[in-house]
Design a protein around this nucleic acid. Structure first.
Lengths: 167, 167
DNA sequence: TTCTGTGCAAAGGATTTGCATAGAC
DNA sequence: GTCTATGCAAATCCTTTGCACAGAA
């Protein structure tokens, strides 16, 4: 006997839709600022802080403006919700996509302040082994390797070469 | 022919003495606040921030008082000098001994906010290998593994046991 | 005596909060 | 209509700075 076709269960596919469901399930309201920020965040996979975000969003008086305090409030909310994760970097808080984005760590260039992502299973294994030794129950970790990126090294070498040329 | 006994070259043995030499070599002055902070720092191998330090130091009006701005200035100076290193932790800057103290990383307990040190050569090797892959020139790194320390896990388990007893 | 280092008060930058109102449900 | 979320302004937290004076060298 042929089975019935499966009922068409609506599946949230876009981040916005998933977020909408998240809000509903918690009795939170689907407001304009929330839509604007979710939209922004999922369309730019970069690292950013509250100030950069405000800079790129519409200005006060313009359509789509979100106030500074709301930006802070929503960023914290998104972190809580698991949409974003934070990186503490020299005093400022930098945000990056978390939801549906693989766990990773960063190389931080002291010259150009660029963050470069990398992923390492070895690191995870080592982390877990290290924690195990101290009977520590891991919930997460953050590794930032700092130094100088390839590009900045090249630029520096070029400068040195020029200096030599002048002699 | 027996050699002459080696000339008695004075060797700075205590951190304070070494620091005094450091100051001299740079034409910096050996002031009371500097002595007080060096003394404090090398006698307590903990992690601390500017505020905690101020809390533990003599109060205004008392002998040995160091002003808030001087504390900040000297902490930055010590980091520059390689006596201390910093850890960025949830907004605040935490300091710890660096000079003559082996490189290490931290487990951070989210419950009691304790920092637990550990050292891993494997981690250093892995770090260097990872950076190498991206042609990144490493100058340092910071790894914080967060979660729950052994003590806090025990306390929690105890609480749960108590709850069960009540049923 | 000279010039660095300090204390004080004030400024700064990032983030948070109290409150009245707008707006989602 | 009800009650959460927002915008605004003010507050707060941590840190830095300008300046006059103290005190090392």
């Amino acid at each position: 006997m042929p089975s019935e076709p499966l009922a068409r269960i609506p599946v949230a596919s876009t981040p916005s839709q998933r977020f909408e469901e998240y809000l509903q399930s918690r009795g939170m309201r689907n407001t304009k600022p929330r839509r604007i920020l979710v939209e922004y965040i999922f369309n730019s996979h970069d690292h950013f802080d509250a100030d950069e975000l405000l800079d790129r969003l519409p200005r006060k008086g313009t359509q789509g403006y979100v106030s500074r305090s709301t930006v802070y409030r929503l960023l914290a909310e998104f972190v809580e919700a698991g949409l974003l994760r934070t990186i503490e970097l020299e005093g400022r808080t930098v945000y990056e996509l978390d939801y549906g984005y693989p766990q990773h760590d960063h190389l931080y260039c002291n010259s150009c302040e660029k963050l470069i992502e990398f992923q390492s299973d070895h690191l995870l294994e080592l982390r877990n082994a290290l924690a195990q030794k101290a009977n520590f129950q891991v919930s997460g970790h953050q590794l930032i390797i700092s130094g100088e990126c390839e590009d900045c090294q090249k630029i520096k070498r070029k400068r040195i070469r020029r200096k030599v040329d002048l002699i």
